[in-house]
């Protein structure tokens, strides 16, 4: 049974009997709204890109400027997700395991990238790292340029992806059983050994999930990146920006092609997340 699309006449057999009313209305509305707002527009994209064919998609992806954009997006998103993985684990650990002044406030601020509009994040990061900015000026003294280079993209994507890692890992750190640590210490393991061989393995699925979520989000990110990236063709253009550029040139097939490739990658990431979680449930009994 793969599709819920057969309500209607068989509704009574389709759902299990229940005294609660309103199934037809709410289920019908859910399908209608989902279909009109999400599925129909996405179908338009798939229909358009099927007109291009695989060879058409390949031609678009290997166009030098597009290929450079896709490479930039994937490579820097990967690096940003790695940085988030490392610092996200430390932040999740510190916020869960230790108590210190300002912990709750800091904990609340971790969600800032979710709440702050991306355009605002974009211009404030650009202002920070610009040659005359708070961070840009001292760095410029050492000859380091962040804003309007690929490093700027990295900074923006680190900002965007951080909460995904922290919020995925935090609940699992909270659930770690002290008994395991005690047993490990009793059996003669040093603290470092305990951390590496007892505490980290159950965190691995959550870390992987957080990494994949941050990576997937970074690939699609637009608003926070374009202000700081400088958007130099072949150097610091990201794939979503190329969609906008193609649209402005009325190159609808080009825009569709890039969008299809990005969509395929995000679905692959989503699938990977689900596989990791299914594995984690089997192996560790939690997500």
């Amino acid at each position: 049974m793969t599709s819920p699309n057969f309500a209607g006449r068989n509704a009574r057999r389709f759902k299990a009997p229940s005294v609660i009313p309103g199934f037809g209305l709410t289920f019908g509305y859910t399908l209608l709204y989902l279909g009109l707002v999400v599925l129909l527009p996405l179908a338009a994209l798939i229909w358009r890109s099927s007109g291009l064919g695989l060879s058409g998609l390949y031609d678009i992806a290997t166009e030098p400027r597009v290929a450079a954009g896709l490479r930039t997006t994937f490579f820097i998103s990967f690096c940003a997700a790695l940085v988030d993985l490392f610092f996200g684990l430390i932040v999740a650990w510190v916020l869960t395991r230790y108590d210190f002044f300002g912990r709750r406030l800091l904990d609340a601020f971790v969600d800032l990238p979710f709440a702050l509009p991306t355009a605002v994040a974009g211009i404030s990061l650009a202002a920070l790292y610009a040659p005359n900015g708070w961070f840009g000026e001292p760095l410029a003294a050492y000859g380091i340029k962040i804003a309007y280079t690929r490093w700027g993209i990295l900074v923006a994507l680190i900002f965007i992806g951080l909460p995904f890692v922290v919020r995925t890992v935090q609940p699992i750190v909270a659930e770690l059983e002290t008994e395991l640590e005690e047993a490990s210490a009793t059996l003669g393991a040093s603290r470092v050994q305990t951390v590496l061989r007892v505490l980290l393995p159950p965190l691995a699925p959550a870390l992987l999930t957080g990494f994949a979520l941050a990576f997937a989000r970074s690939i699609g990110e637009y608003g926070s990146v374009i202000f700081i990236a400088g958007n130099i063709a072949y150097v610091s253009e990201i794939a979503p920006l190329l969609i906008v550029v193609k649209l402005e040139q009325y190159d609808i097939p080009g825009a569709t092609g890039i969008a299809t490739i990005m969509l395929a990658i995000s679905f692959a990431a989503l699938l990977a997340i689900n596989l990791v979680q299914a594995f984690a449930r089997k192996r560790f009994g939690h997500v």
């Binding site: 699609g220 649209l247 969008a259 995000s266 679905f267 989503l270």
Partner: peptide
Amino acid sequence: SVSPVVAGLVY
């Protein structure tokens, strides 16, 4: 899981 730009594009 859809990029905001792609969300605009589909419309």
